[in-house]
Design a protein around this nucleic acid. Structure first.
Lengths: 235, 235
DNA sequence: CTAATAAATTGATTTAAATCAATTTTAAGG
DNA sequence: CCTTAAAATTGATTTAAATCAATTTATTAG
């Protein structure tokens, strides 16, 4: 059963699905005409850090990780995108190369909106422009929270917080009362936390021993979200 | 003498001075009429995380730190703003509370642009809108770089990188050949790195012993920026 | 279904950085 | 200029997490 807890993921969620929602009908129609859907298999890359965008991506179905790779080849996952979210638009708007890479972590359907169409729409739609400003500003706050997490929280605290965030991302449509299944490789989870897989596993074991979570294979079930809120030590 | 080195601070600089530069004359005039200058003494707060913005800030002269305070009361400095930069506009655009606090670290002159004036201008100026989108997108990439730094770099690496960034921020107008003076409390510097003051001091000592830097009181002079680029281990 | 391969887990050890404790230096005010 | 409080520095110790090494458990291709 999913619990009701005193925690909102808003401070850790990009919420870019709100950008395309509530657009004027003409803008929505324009987008519908321009969007090109494509399927990606688990593991497939959407775009690669350092290259220039040819358009932006709209995640129709599935999940995508946004990550950076450091000089020593280690991956760090900045964000997990869920259905309805936009990807790659900051690079297009800043006229810079992609600042991160994106890869599907589930089989996904992604809509591609070519640069020209997107810019055309942006130029004629003040609503879209305003929504993007609002969303980018929100994402700024989210990344700041991330920096604070990485700078000052212990791995145990970050794991608790991350499990709460993932709980939200992996919850299913129907809002049924089955426990939420978090299905992510240990490596990906460690790369979200910015820690070693072994360290991650040790804390998962601790949480299991304390009956906060339960696992079946790689899948994680959250049993005591309230306790995770306490451990995460967030205001 | 300041050296020429293979390192650009662009990936770590918000560059918001570009937002108000090159605006159409009418927009600039509108801003000039709306802006209210105010002096802040070293240590004075500009705004506080959690409160709603009444307007945005334009740093005319001086330096301001943007920081967050975690649950245990520890401060983390996200960014040092320099002359010409904008502050507080993401909160206004996202219609959320300030995601960070801001305080002067030098005696500063700050122009305040009331919310109403800023929103009015934004609504009538597509150029401003586009520039803000561009800048916010760039800042997104900067914060991602920050996250990667905090997640995977050692304190020694982060110190080297931070000194290079500060070298740029503290360089004086005239481009004279005097060595650049970085004047910041050890506590502030430690709070940029996300480390303890004692740890910071130990690495400063190491850099001094290797003749990479020199100090006089709290002031740091960079002697070998090329070596710092190597130590920072950036691509 | 089963082998082969990859992923996950556990244990032992090392390392980076925090913390605690004290001393020295610096800056600010009278 | 001197006093004093704050800031910076150094040293000793502890702690969190990484790394190295091995084993067990899943997953997937055939």
């Amino acid at each position: 059963m999913t619990e009701n807890i005193e925690f909102s993921v808003d401070d850790y969620h990009f919420k870019s699905h709100s950008v395309f929602e509530n657009l004027p009908v003409e803008d929505k129609d324009f987008l519908k005409a321009a969007i090109i859907p494509k399927k990606y298999k688990k593991g497939d890359m959407l775009f690669l850090e350092g290259s220039y965008p040819a358009g932006i991506f709209y995640l129709i179905e599935g999940k995508v990780k946004k990550f950076k790779v450091d000089n020593d080849g280690r991956e760090h996952i900045i964000y997990i995108c869920n259905k309805g979210e936009l990807l790659g638009y900051p690079a297009l708007l800043s006229e810079e190369t992609f600042s991160d890479s994106a890869a599907a972590i589930e089989n996904s359907t992604v809509g591609f909106i070519p640069k020209k169409a997107f810019i055309t729409l942006l130029e004629k739609s003040p609503v879209l422009s305003r929504k993007l400003l609002k969303n980018l500003s929100h994402e700024f706050a989210v990344l700041e929270n991330n920096i604070l997490s990485m700078a000052h929280k212990t791995v145990r605290e970050r794991l608790a917080l991350t499990l709460l965030i993932l709980r939200d991302k992996f919850k299913t449509e129907g809002e049924n009362n089955d426990p939420i299944e978090i299905n992510l490789s240990r490596e990906d989870l460690a790369n979200i936390l910015g820690t070693a897989v072994e360290t991650l596993v040790r804390f998962l074991r601790e949480f299991k021993d304390e009956k906060i979570i339960q696992t079946k294979g790689r899948t994680i079930f959250i049993l005591n979200a309230k306790r995770l809120v306490e451990i995460a030590n967030i205001h």
